[in-house]
Design a protein around this nucleic acid. Sequence first.
RNA 1: GUCCCCAUCGUCUAGCCCGGUUAGGACACCACCCUUUCACGGUGGGCACCGGGGUUCGAAUCCCCGUGGGGACGCCA
Length: 479
Amino acid sequence: MGTGCFLLTFLTRHKPQDFLITMSQVRVRFAPSPTGFFHIGSARTALFNWLYARHTGGVFVLRIEDTDQARNSEEFLNVIYDSLAWLGMSWDEGPKVGGACGPYRQSERAPIYKEYLQKLLDAGRAYEKDGAIWFKLLGERSEVFDDHRKKTVTKVANTPAVIDDQIRGRVERLEDEDFVIFRSDGNPVFHFVNVVDDIAMKITHVIRGEDHLSNTSKHVELFKAFGAPMPKFAHIPLILKQNGPGKMSKRDQGALIEEYQKKGYLPEALVNFLSLLGWNPGGDREKMPIEEIIRLFDLPAVNQSNARFDDKKLAHMNMVYLLEQPADRFVSLARAQMERQQAASALAADPAYLREVVLLSQPKIKSLEELATYTAYFFTEDFAVDAKVRDKVMAKGEPKARLAELAETLATADFSSDTAIEEAIKALATRTALSFGDYQSVGRLAVSGTNVGPSLTGMFRVLGRERVLARIAKFQATA
RNA sequence: GUCCCCAUCGUCUAGCCCGGUUAGGACACCACCCUUUCACGGUGGGCACCGGGGUUCGAAUCCCCGUGGGGACGCCA
């Protein structure tokens, strides 16, 4: 009550401008627990917090919720750091970078929790029972048998907590049972540490998944008991699994950030896609540079309904980004992906040659992941010939005659450019009254063993006359 | 079971707040065009306001009830 009165007088004595100055800047936090995986839902929660901080010029805090001591390790922590770094989200306060409200790992904040617990104890808002410490709600008590949980519980005639949610509006929820804040093993529980840290770290906006909306009444009661200013809440919709019921869990296909790293997805494509899952700037804008997303992002524009994850749309977004990568970056991305896939023969090749092969393929591929397979025949003479394609190609016209003519032409053709090779083949086609296509299918089959690939002339040029003729000869011998 | 949240094409969504649109875009799908295979791209097509009541001259839009989906009900976070 005292704080309420203070606030009232404060507001009446000061002009709006003064109030603005007093109001600190936005402080948001991302508070993952190091379970060993970085979930796509966590990534989006982190992203929305980060975007809001960057949009408002606020502070993005990283706090590690590692009170579950059994499951912590440095390795798990690194998964979080690496994933955030990969996605391009830097934190202003937190582990590694420090800050005024540290430490930022809950496992190192025990004295702070003890101190806050004492405040509750002194105020008569906490008590011990069964070796644990419980938070005490205010109101008349009565014993009631809970059919669902099959036990007698103590209900408290409390008034509903009011949650002022930036996305959902006003939400009321009644918290009518005391709850544990310190386990009998002496460790504080999530609801307690979460609120204490949000107070101690001066968090102004709590942006988190909707699965926490029901918990928020507990948190509101705690904020009130501490007499602390209530942060703004923003509960964002959940990401549902693409097939079947329920929210996406770490066991679902595509749920882990590391999967996308392994597949060579571009982080900016994933970030763009994730930003659009549950938010959009209005209108038709989809592919946007991160600066644009930051400029347009705001909490009230976030949707209220859950979104189903669609890997096809993500793959498409990734392809669009891939297509427009500058040569140098594309080559280094391709190389990194080949290293992950241990494409030994490609990596053993001359870097300049690898570069040519990769750039020749850039406009054709849909993902980095398929690049090694797509270009395999560039790096070995021992490539497989697709039997189906062979049957199909060899069944039409007179492919053997065409191949012989092609080989003869190529033996003396100018290999200095794609167009030079193209002109030579077109001249041949004119002489025989056929088309480029009549030479392409069998030529491609003989030289690459398949019917898909980059432009034929580019492929010939990069491979070089010697290897092209040798491959044709080898093919003729077996066909 | 109780409580909380949500509801437009198969999917992500615009439109909803401040009622009047041929309900728009993207992914996926189909067809055609382009083309030197495969892609990219282009054009076109099919595909949606969950149901029922109200309010109103008029409802995707406002209200209520159903139904459906999701979440929370731990000494997990």
